[in-house]
Computed example of a mutant assay.
Amino acid sequence: MAEPFKNLLNAAVVADMSDRLRKAWPRFDAKRFETLALDGLDELEMKARAMHLCTALEGTLPGDFKLSADILRKAIEGGLAKWALWPVGEYVSRHGLGHPDRALEVLHALTQNFTAEWAIRPFILQHPELTFATLARWVADPSEHVRRLVSEGSRPRLPWGLQLKPLIADPTPTLPLLEALMDDDSDYVRKSVANHLNDIAKDHPHLVADWLDKHLPGASAKRKALLRHASRTLIKKGDARVLGAFGQGAKFKGEAVLSLSPRRIRLGDSVTLDVLLTPAGRKNQSLVIDYAVHHVKANGGTSPKVFKGWTLDLAAPRALRRQHAVKPITTRKYFSGVHRIELLINGRVEAHADFALTC
């Protein structure tokens, strides 16, 4: 059995933190830190462990944040790294807002050894002018980790992170940063830019469609891949402008048949989708084929969820097959009833079929 994720923050990590902090500041009370950090640690889950270790830092670092910032930077330079830096980042985000210049210096060092994507977000909210000016400089930083932080830390809807509601409402302050990083040499950075644009697409699809109009013509293969990944939510939704930008917005010309087997399943089983596409004529058609499962809800209504299918060019009849598992997951509760599956071709419903689920 795999080691539980939460155990990445354990007694050995606490001992290492204690040692490196004491070396950075000989007056550091290592014994007290370890006592506070280990008290109840094993009973906590991952994020709670990080917050718990931050509380231990609060109980042992000096109250003067400028001094604490110097200690933390020295400890990072001395080898403090990886998951031990999550509580350090939390400490900086809690106590550095009164000294944002010094705090951002610590996060610059921290992110090169872990990530400061969660810790920087309060500074974007509380000190937007200073923080965005800093991010604008960091787009040219030699470290790919710092450049990624520019994009990842300012994502409006970062998983596990504080939502940046002003940027959800108006994401335009981040667009110059994304434009500067869009053709970055690092896959790591470009993936973050794509995810950031996909965040924006959830609230402002027209901005991403405008972005494609501007940046897709004549794009390199790497940029095209980034833009396609950035558009994944809108492609799933069948956004006409976005599909059109990729040459896949035209209505399918031909016949599509969707068959399901078996037609009755129990929770934990799979249903097989068989698709037969018969184009009208021999002219090649560029197609994005997804499918929407309309899950039954507790009140008897349904809620659709789109799943990726196939992307292909079609000039002759073709059969496709896909198995769809209906298994318990933490993010969805299933209910018995008739579930409809719709076949989406270039964003339009072209066929549908039903299956019955018993939970």
Rank of each mutant, 00 (worst) to 15 (best):
T172I: 12
R332I: 05
D19P: 09
A353W: 02
A116W: 03
L57G: 07
L178R: 12
K74M: 11
N10K: 05
V275Q: 06
W118I: 13
A180P: 02
D185K: 11
A24M: 02
L125Y: 10
D213M: 11
T331G: 00
R27W: 07
P128I: 11
L320C: 04
E90Q: 14
L276Q: 12
N198G: 00
I345K: 09
R264F: 00
G218P: 01
L104I: 11
G153S: 04
N346P: 06
W310Y: 13
A180I: 02
R190T: 11
A256F: 11
I76K: 09
L107R: 12
A219L: 01
W86K: 05
D70N: 15
A2H: 12
R340T: 15
F114G: 06
L104G: 12
G247Y: 03
A136W: 06
F335K: 05
T272I: 13
L110C: 02
L344F: 04
G238Q: 01
N7C: 11
H95N: 09
A298W: 07
R94S: 01
R49G: 06
A280M: 13
H294N: 07
A219E: 01
N346K: 12
G96W: 08
G254L: 08
E105P: 07
L243I: 07
D269G: 01
D269T: 00
L273M: 08
E58D: 15
G347H: 06
H324I: 06
D184T: 06
P217Y: 00
V257K: 15
L276R: 07
S259A: 12
Q112A: 02
A225L: 03
D42G: 07
K297L: 10
P26E: 12
L149M: 14
P62A: 12
D184A: 04
H294V: 01
P262I: 12
V106T: 07
R322Y: 01
E77H: 14
A2Y: 09
L181I: 06
H196G: 03
P328L: 12
